[in-house]
């Protein structure tokens, strides 16, 4: 069953066409990743799907009362508003302090509940955003470059957690990601976006598609291979000062 579907979405800012002819749907339990260069309209598309932005053409259907967990690409909490981590988590609608604390532990920052949001590091902030999204008991989790600011082990842990969540709750996951190797291993479906859908399909299909290779380079062929033999290549010698 499709949780969110979009037909013929187009977005235009003045004379600039950001998105056109986008058809999309996501089903229960599906993991879909959107890849594409900067300025391809990835974030705009997510914002259209959650209803934060009205498309210039086309329509979006969400199942009635759909619970969406959204992790925005950027969220600045200014110093003007005092906001502790615990209070921010409660804004998700989950008022139970022990549930919220358990979620913080799960995303790996159990000791930050009393901190101010503005004092968190980039990585901690992303984790709190994820905890916030998960506490809303989402049926679909929409993540806009969720791993930016995370170090390598944290990125791995992040994707493991997301997979667990999918398995536990059967919640669908839609994300924009630049972590091509992870994307290629863990997604059911990959959408390659550059103003329109260039190509779409299983990770292995997409990595072989000429449209994908045109965007991400042929020698990425694919990121699958890159992932498997990361250490098989030699580097050019770098002069050490």
């Amino acid at each position: 069953m499709s949780l969110i579907s979009a037909e013929g979405i187009g977005v235009q800012y003045g004379a600039r066409r950001v998105l056109q002819h986008m058809n999309f749907s996501i089903d229960v339990g599906e993991v879909v990743t959107i890849v594409g260069p900067n300025g391809a309209g990835k974030s705009v598309f997510l914002r259209v799907l959650i209803g934060a932005e009205q498309p210039s053409e086309g329509r979006v259907n969400r199942t009635h009362g759909l619970a969406i967990g959204y992790v925005p690409q950027r969220l600045s909490i200014g110093q003007t508003m005092p906001m502790s981590v615990a209070r921010f988590l409660a804004l998700s609608g989950s008022q139970n302090a022990s549930t919220n604390q358990a979620m913080l532990t799960r995303v790996g920052i159990s000791d930050r509940a009393k901190e101010q949001m503005a004092s968190l590091s980039g990585g901690e902030f992303q984790r709190v955003l994820l905890a916030h999204a998960l506490l809303g008991e989402p049926q679909v989790l929409i993540l806009d470059e969720p791993t930016q600011g995370l170090d390598q082990p944290a990125v791995a842990a992040f994707y493991r957690l997301i997979e667990e969540v999918r398995d536990e709750r059967g919640c669908a996951i839609l994300m924009v990601s630049h972590d091509l190797n992870v994307v290629m291993r863990r997604s059911d479906r990959v959408i390659c976006l550059n103003g329109h859908i260039c190509c779409e399909g299983t990770p292995s299909d997409v990595s072989l598609a000429p449209e994908y290779q045109a965007l991400f380079g042929v020698d990425n062929e694919g990121a699958l291979a890159l992932y498997h033999h990361e250490h098989d290549h030699t580097h050019d010698t770098v002069a050490v000062p």
Binding site: I50, I68, Y70
Partner: peptide, 17 residues
């Protein structure tokens, strides 16, 4: 609650309807 969420981030609020 809604006012706080909107003030924090309009997109976050939109996702929550």
């Amino acid at each position: 609650g809604s006012l706080l969420t909107v003030t924090l981030n309009a997109d976050l609020a939109a996702a929550r309807g």
